[in-house]
């Protein structure tokens, strides 16, 4: 039976079915991926939960302190502040999916230059996070930055220092984050829309449906599965978001732009509190799991759409 691995060309479809229904063979094929995921994801995951039970500076000896780190985290106002910021980001990135969807609908409707536009939207995704951060730091510079220069030109007298004021810094960072991932979601929606068979659209058109009706009654329902996936992606991605915040403000000023992941990093690497940092990391995982579960429940539908 193992010949299947080396003599694939000789085999008929029946042999293939027989082989693939053998549980051992299935296990064998799954094993390499399982090993890698185990080593690089599950084991570190369990370990970080375990480190959360320790008082550990990351260098010296560990002491077991039970649930102390976890209870401390639950009472840590800074942690909840950062969690709130992460949730805000999740809400904003979910809402922005609507805009991406609208753009994808327009792009997919064969307008002139849609190919070029699609490529332009994708550019931010090709840049590394640090490059994007540097770019936006320049744009936001309070005196010489592009944004404030424009505001001054159009007569705004005292434009804000975007990254320095605690009341706006968080939203100022959200913009490049949303911009960074726009191309990604637009591309997903675009591909999904392109997958809808022309015949269905054609039939609707013959029945006299307007373009708006086609979009809302036919295209949208057909790609609902993809939309749900992107909501989960956006929420999970936001909750564990780190890069731009770390480079652009380091979570500051005074914690105003701190999110869960940057707070975790700060605790582990800046204050040498690996035990507490691990506990926060583990809580981050649990929160993300719970939220993902809720999102999936909320968006669940019974029927699967088939073309």
């Amino acid at each position: 039976m193992l010949s299947v691995l080396f003599y694939l060309p000789d085999m008929g479809l029946n042999d293939m079915d027989k082989v693939m229904s053998n549980k051992w063979i299935i296990a064998l094929y799954v094993l390499p991926a399982l090993l890698l995921i185990g080593i690089f994801i599950f084991i570190p995951l369990v370990l970080s939960g375990y480190y959360g039970f320790m008082d550990w500076d990351g260098i010296g000896a560990m002491t077991f302190i039970g649930l102390e780190n976890y209870t401390a985290a639950l009472q840590d106002a800074k942690f909840w502040d950062s969690a709130w910021h992460s949730f805000l980001l999740a809400i904003f990135s979910t809402l922005s999916l609507l805009i991406y969807l609208a753009i994808a609908l327009i792009l997919a409707s064969k307008i002139k230059g849609s190919d070029l536009l699609r490529k332009i939207y994708l550019i931010p995704m090709l840049l590394s996070s640090v490059a994007i951060a540097q770019l936006w730091i320049k744009i936001y510079n309070p005196t010489s930055g592009m944004l404030n220069q424009i505001l001054l030109k159009i007569g705004v007298e005292n434009p804000p220092a975007w990254l320095a004021e605690t009341s706006i810094v968080l939203y100022a960072i959200f913009i490049p984050i949303l911009w960074q991932y726009a191309g990604f979601y637009i591309l997903i929606y675009y591909a999904a829309l392109k997958n809808i068979p022309d015949s269905i659209i054609e039939a609707a058109r013959i029945d006299g449906a307007s373009p708006v009706q086609i979009a809302f009654r036919i295209k949208l329902p057909l790609i609902m599965g993809i939309v749900k996936v992107t909501i989960v992606l956006a929420v999970v991605g936001s909750l564990k978001y780190f890069d731009l915040i770390y480079v652009m403000t380091g979570g500051g000023p005074n914690g105003a732009s701190e999110v869960m992941a940057s707070y975790m990093y700060k605790l582990a690497f800046d204050t040498n509190n690996f035990g507490y940092g691990s506990a926060i990391g583990f809580l981050l995982l649990i929160i993300t799991l719970v939220v993902t579960y809720i999102v999936r429940k909320l968006t669940a539908t019974k029927e699967e759409i088939q073309y």
Partner: peptide, 21 residues
């Protein structure tokens, strides 16, 4: 202090000084 100092990195402040700003 220069405007928005809490959001500026030291490198940015330095370049302001070195540009005579």
């Amino acid at each position: 202090f220069v405007k928005g100092f809490n959001g500026l990195a030291d490198e940015e402040a330095k370049s302001m000084f070195m540009n005579g700003q």
